[in-house]
Design a protein around this nucleic acid. Structure first.
Lengths: 351, 351
DNA sequence: CTGAAAGCGCTTACAG
DNA sequence: CTGAAAGCGCTTACAG
């Protein structure tokens, strides 16, 4: 069913049908009603491609997620969907599998013109820092509005794209301070990556951890930073599990009284590894995560964490992207939203 | 950058550019190389809408998920993405928030012509059975190939759409038999819905549970079926938790030795509720889930479950949909794929 | 192997 | 308030 067929059925011109379908004011209310009734009856929906070609807008935002799809990103995605729907946009997830995560794939998605705006969620580009930075610069040359959510844009010194994230560093600082206030001094950081470049979420969390130790006069011990054995799957249970299970040297040092995992999922995995090693949480080892997901909430013991304000992060992302769509030359902005420490049952008070 | 501009830059006709970009054989290899190099240099990517309008194919499959986005569906989505990519199709998730889950929304997504095929994943339609059935019949009239994955199509007696799912009933049968073989006879089923219409995954699992009891000569006790207190969020930790915490009557009967949760997530929630009630798993109560997700794997104790062959389910879904796209009048088929009981640490052998 | 032209289904000035 | 016509950016017979 095309607009021409419907026009013939209704005995009007295609332009009139178009006006009726688009709720233009310059059409007789009765004509409008008649046409819309006929459209409904025949299941006519304007062809999105033709409309887009003519009008230059798809009313669709793409959310690009690369690699693993964790619960955190999924929840942000849900909130993004709601926020964009409020503004009249459809949201569509373009998931790029790890295998296909090349600059070309990402660039094609953006350039094809299927979308009015793009949100890069969680991660993008390759592990190679230079390649990611180059992708970021290439993307900046495409005139499709885009924004980065829960990930920096890796473009180097001067940011080329706006980004919205939880304030990882402050959150980790507060969480570490919480542990310190409970008497812990030998605190391990588990499951981060290896390049300490300060832009990844885990690196910012590590920086916050370090700063809190420093503020409390506790010396930083490189031995207590246990990097992930699965750098491609940082934010997973498996990462937390394997990283603790394969603790370098002769296993978990006996004097470690608390472990900070890179996220809640990793904390749950770490808890399992600790259990297998015969170390009880929190009686023998305290444990904290990051994110505030259900997985930590229903864990026994409930994991103390920093809850990310996901709805707020999503709304802020939508706001920045929509503003950039209206005003392409708008200034780049980096938004950091504070999380909140949520006490669970996984931290023991040392006396 | 349009095809016309690129044609002028290269000093050829637009038709030649088109041929070069589409890898047609009837173009001079040198011309082709020159054009493609120029396209790369200028970041030219053919406009997807114009292409689609002309050619009638988007090379894009939409996966529609309605309401909650759980880990199981996400993993199926990842596998679907890989399977369709192998066939040269992009996959896009069109998530429909619970608030917007009307027949109109779904129908619009399908009719707009943005997609060559549609996979309904996990659930669709409203809670109202009649409305869902009506939607199913309306969808059947749209000539976009579609298939249902991990959900039946609710169209009533005669199926109007193909569907691919794990064999829920057999899985639950085997899992229940596993419990019975371990000496359990008072086994509760926790977290299912209320309408026992036999089509939902949970209802099929309940049917399998019941059949296994019958086969073992254990009488079915309605009291041991504890329906969800959160019918809209069946496959969540929260459902398992609340359903056990708010067990009807005077709480968990003392003679219940095992609980079968509607899925792994619910089992984890149930475990937390049991812990709060002072009942240890598996020492005092055994517990099983369904799905085979990481959440159960890293739980302490590891949850005994039925692992769904997600890759196989996704591949089968892609195969059926692609076949339907090639051959629209192809027969409807219902595919049930067997899962596999995976023993964890959550079932105690009663002696 | 290459080019000129028609047309996919829409929307939007432009007339009336 | 309605209609006829142009054109969005492509692809594909049809000629050459």
């Amino acid at each position: 069913m095309t607009i021409r067929e419907l026009a013939r059925i209704c005995g009007v011109a295609v332009s009139t049908v178009s006006r009726a379908m688009n709720d233009r004011s310059d059409v007789n209310p009765e004509t409008r009603a008649r046409i819309r009734a006929a459209a409904e009856r025949h299941g006519y929906v304007p062809n999105a491609s033709a409309r887009r070609l003519k009008i230059g807008t798809t009313q669709t935002i793409s959310v690009v997620i690369q690699g693993e799809l964790g619960q955190l990103l999924i929840e942000v995605l849900e909130h993004l969907g709601l926020a964009f729907a409020d503004a009249g946009y459809d949201t569509v997830l373009s998931h790029v599998a790890e295998q296909h995560a090349t600059a070309g794939t990402v660039e094609r998605i953006v350039r094809e013109g299927k979308f009015d705006g793009v949100v890069f969620l969680g991660r993008y580009g390759s592990a190679d820092r230079e390649a990611s930075s180059q992708l970021s610069r290439r993307l900046a040359e495409i005139d499709v509005p885009m924004v980065f959510c829960t990930t920096p844009d890796y473009s180097g010194a001067a940011s080329l794209h706006s980004s919205i994230s939880v304030d990882d560093q402050t959150g980790a600082y507060e969480l570490t301070s919480h542990l310190i206030a409970h008497g812990h001094r030998r605190i391990a950081f588990v499951g981060g990556g290896t390049e300490r470049d300060g832009e990844h979420a885990w690196a910012l969390r590590l920086a916050g951890y370090r700063a809190a130790l420093g503020a409390a006069g506790i010396s930083f011990d490189e031995e207590l930073v246990v990097p992930s054995v699965l750098p491609d799957q940082l934010y997973t249970m498996r990462n937390g599990y394997e990283s603790v299970a394969q603790w370098p040297g002769s296993g978990i040092p006996g004097d470690v009284t608390a472990i900070m995992a890179v996220c809640d999922a990793a904390a749950v995995g770490a808890a399992r590894a600790l259990s297998e090693a015969g170390r009880r949480v929190p009686d023998e080892v305290s444990l904290v995560g990051f994110d505030g997901l259900d997985i930590g909430k229903y864990h026994v013991p409930r994991i103390t964490t920093v809850a990310q304000p996901l709805a707020e992060i999503a709304q802020s992302t939508a706001r920045v992207l929509l503003a950039t769509m209206r005003e392409p030359d708008r200034a780049i902005e980096q938004v950091w939203i504070r999380g909140r420490v949520v006490e669970g049952e996984s931290v023991r008070l040392l006396t």
